[in-house]
């Protein structure tokens, strides 16, 4: 056991952790936006090409590996003169992938809102947009919060794959230290713990939000 290795590389690990977090947070913000828009649209009776496109988006990104999606965006898209730097490609990949999963969470949340809420808001004269924004989404979001937090953890863990685009985030930092020091046990244990710590803090935060949101209902 030689955890001194870890100690000596602490600034490097800290920097990598920061990179993991920034990529995750930005990707999550975009994923959340995608999820709300796509989830809301898909929860209503869309028809024709918009429906096909959105269905395809969700099914495709949930049905293929994130690693391949990242490769495709970073290495594949330049064929159409879309050249992205690795960070942008990584964030786009994570956001599209996470957004597809999270849109289903939002959709499920919307579908679980009681039919009476739609009827009451219609009767009161709400337009479609007002009803969705003021009545349906707040209630759907409350139901969706725990699963959306899982979505954040998913993106956080998924972000270890962006190491293949040579972004020196936590996973790649681990690999680099390992190749320099040949101490895989110590390094990967610490890396795993760091990931766990981050997801754990986030789920505690979610519990807090959840209690606050449901406080007024009970």
């Amino acid at each position: 056991m030689d955890f001194l290795i870890v100690y000596r590389n602490l600034p490097f690990i800290a920097e990598a952790t920061f990179k993991t977090l920034t990529h995750t947070v930005i990707a999550f913000a975009f994923a959340l936006a995608i999820a709300f828009i796509v989830g809301t649209l898909r929860s209503f009776k869309l028809k024709g090409i918009p429906k096909l496109l959105l269905d395809f988006y969700v099914e495709f990104f949930r049905g293929s590996p994130l690693l391949i999606q990242l490769f495709f965006i970073y290495y594949g898209l330049p064929k159409f003169n879309i050249v992205l730097d690795s960070s942008t490609a990584a964030i786009i990949g994570l956001a599209l992938n996470g957004g597809a999963y999270m849109s289903e969470i939002i959709r499920a949340g919307i579908l679980s809102v009681d039919k009476g809420q739609y009827e009451a808001s219609y009767t009161l004269g709400y337009t479609w947009l007002q009803k969705t924004w003021h009545i349906i989404l707040p209630q759907a979001t409350r139901i969706a919060v725990p699963s959306l937090v899982n979505g954040f953890s998913g993106i956080l863990k998924g972000s270890s794959l962006i190491s293949v685009l040579s972004i020196t985030e936590l996973t790649r930092a681990g690999q680099l230290i390992y190749t320099r020091t040949s101490k895989p046990f110590e390094i990967y244990l610490v890396i795993a713990l760091l990931y766990f710590l981050m997801t754990y803090i986030v789920s505690l935060l979610a519990l807090n939000i959840e209690t606050k949101l449901s406080a007024k209902y009970n």
């Binding site: 009476g116 009827e119 004269g125 707040p138 209630q139």
Partner: peptide, 16 residues
Amino acid sequence: LKKTGMVFQQFNLFPH
């Protein structure tokens, strides 16, 4: 429609 209102069996108040 704005001139008509409805009171439902299940109340349908907005819980939030």
